[in-house]
Simulated assay, not measured.
Amino acid sequence: MTNTARRPLANFALPALIGGALLMGAAAPALAQTGSDSAFKATTFSLSAYGETHVAPDMATINLGVQTEALTAADALKANGARMNQVMAALKKAGIAERDIQTSNLNLNAQYVYEQNKPPRLTGYQASNQVTVTVRDLTKLGASVDATVNAGANTINGVSFGLANPQAAEDAARLEAVKALQAKAELYGRATGYKAVRLVNLSEGGGYAPAPPPMPMYAMAKREMADATSIAAGELKVRIDVNAVYEAAK
């Protein structure tokens, strides 16, 4: 008979097994461990949170313009230019500075009629001129819209609200984000028996973005306009996202 030598099973260090058991899935903030070998050197919480603040806007941006049609391209452009000059003058009279009025689009398109079994038939030309207007005094917003329509503007492509200086609102959101982050670290500490003892890394995302404009709309005829257009500014939401890594210990 021959004896077969048996190699003893490898021994696994208990701390390594415990460390592996504490790893969480990627779908939730993770309790991870880092190290250069199998004996992990540190236990960390990798967490994310966000903070929000709501603030009233102090400025608005309007995109509006003039569309004209004529039998010839020259006549369409001439009519458009004359009406747009009236719109510009109305904006300045309403208190909008020249630096806050900027041409954003100018188009000239041929207009055709399409009939079955016939080649397209040219019927005229359409000229379109769009301007972007920044209104820094929101008390003038409704009056500015009314003035432009009364002066000949026949397209309004939307109004968006914003902040001239978003720094204070962003800082308030940062404070809320850090509070939420610290509360989450404490919660995970209670749940796992570990305690966050040191902030290792902190990164930021998000920030202020102007409210998007509504869907484009066409201005009504002058006789259909109310005496004064009412526009509600509401509130803006400023959000800051933060990510952090905390060193944790028993």
Rank of each mutant, 00 (worst) to 15 (best):
T43N: 13
V131A: 02
K118D: 05
A79D: 14
P120H: 00
Q33L: 04
G65V: 11
A26N: 10
A32C: 07
R83V: 01
G35K: 08
R99G: 08
T132D: 11
A27F: 07
M84R: 11
P8Y: 07
Q116K: 15
L9G: 11
A16L: 15
Q67G: 06
L138F: 11
N109M: 08
P29D: 03
R99V: 15
A10E: 06
G65I: 09
K78P: 09
T123K: 09
V113R: 08
I18S: 08
F45K: 06
G20M: 07
E52P: 00
L77Q: 03
M59V: 01
T134N: 15
E115R: 04
N117P: 08
L47V: 10
T103D: 04
Q126I: 12
E115W: 08
R7V: 13
R136I: 07
T53V: 11
G20D: 00
A76L: 01
A5W: 10
D75F: 00
T134V: 11
D100V: 09
P8K: 14
Y50G: 10
G19P: 00
G95R: 05
P29N: 00
E52R: 09
A97Y: 06
Y112P: 03
L106S: 15
A70K: 01
D37H: 10
T61I: 08
R83W: 04
